[in-house]
């Protein structure tokens, strides 16, 4: 089977910093996602993680196109299933930095079940959601975070469901790093994402990332008038009760920053098999283990 390319020529490419790929973002001009990708790139450069040790994983949606726009490894899978793919990657090779990106529909709608379980496992991942309170790529239907009363193509009389609270859900589900950023403040978001990547456990960063085409309610201006920073408001992110209380704030005041952070062993710390190193680097097969058959005699 001719699957092997030519052997290494001896000139291994030098590790370089994360940067943009040759693919230009396909987002609408002014999209909030430009702020998020800038923050991710900034954080990765600051942490000097080589791009070949990073896997960006996503599902489907405007924001899920993000992995194509940076020069890392990437897996752009099906709708709502980015987290299980990312977990599988971690359990095969936990030396990789795995960053999952996606939208509110992908993560909190079709993917909500995986969201909850990945957090309770405390898999070491960074999960950045570009939360624009609408389905953009499918041209403007209600999402799980669309506000009550909002009129969309699928809710012409206004949404009659209470919106999902990603921050409160993350804290309740066992995420060990829970933060919120805003595309209008790239520096803060880069700090939050850098913290998330360094965190030993499941790190969730929900990013307000306005859709300039299909959401005329939750605009940049709308967010700008409401956001305030938790770290300048005396919030203690080690206090889960304070974190829950801040997570309930919605309306005139929208907190951003680090809601909650705690230390708990990761899934990879507790999985016995991985104590011998990444699965991908371990021996495989039954050669030398023939005695396994004795139990069937």
């Amino acid at each position: 089977m001719a699957t092997s390319a030519a052997p290494a020529s001896g000139t291994t490419p030098l590790p370089v910093l994360v940067g943009k790929s040759e693919i230009k973002p396909t987002w609408c001009p002014g999209c909030g996602d430009f702020g998020v990708i800038a923050a991710i790139e900034m954080a990765l450069k600051r942490l000097k993680i080589p791009p070949y040790n990073i896997v960006l994983v996503s599902g489907i949606g405007c924001s899920s196109n993000l992995p194509h726009f940076l020069n890392t490894y990437g897996f752009h899978g099906i709708h709502g299933r980015s987290l299980p793919v990312a977990e599988g990657i971690r359990w095969a090779n936990h030396e990789l930095n795995v960053i999952v990106t996606g939208g509110d529909g992908d993560g909190f709608g079709i993917g909500a079940g995986h969201f909850v379980h990945a957090m309770r496992r405390n898999v070491k991942l960074t999960y950045v959601t570009m939360d624009n309170e609408v389905y953009g790529l499918t041209t403007g239907q209600a999402s799980p975070t669309t506000m009550m009363g909002a009129k969309t193509k699928s809710t012409p009389s206004g949404v009659i469901e209470h919106p999902l609270n990603p921050i409160a859900l993350a804290i309740a589900s066992g995420a060990t790093y829970v933060a919120r950023g805003f595309s209008g403040d790239v520096k803060q978001m880069a700090d939050l994402i850098a913290g998330a990547i360094q965190h030993q456990g499941f790190a969730f960063v929900d990013a307000f990332s306005p859709c300039v085409t299909y959401n005329k309610l939750n605009t940049f201006d709308w967010f700008r008038q409401r956001v305030y920073k938790l770290d300048s408001a005396g919030h203690d992110p080690t206090d889960i009760n304070q974190a829950f209380a801040r997570a309930q704030e919605w309306g005139d005041k929208l907190p951003t920053g680090l809601f909650y952070k705690t230390d708990r062993p990761t899934y990879e710390d507790l999985e016995e098999v991985l104590q011998a190193g990444p699965a991908v680097k371990q021996p495989a097969g039954l050669v030398g283990k023939e005695s396994i058959l004795d139990e069937f005699l």
């Binding site: 599988g88 990657i89 095969a92 090779n93 995986h114 379980h117 991908v280």
Partner: peptide, 17 residues
């Protein structure tokens, strides 16, 4: 659904799954 996606992720990262 998680099962098959986890297995695909693990395989993508280089183990037989």
């Amino acid at each position: 659904i998680a099962v098959v996606n986890m297995a695909i992720g693990a395989s993508y990262a280089g183990v037989r799954s």
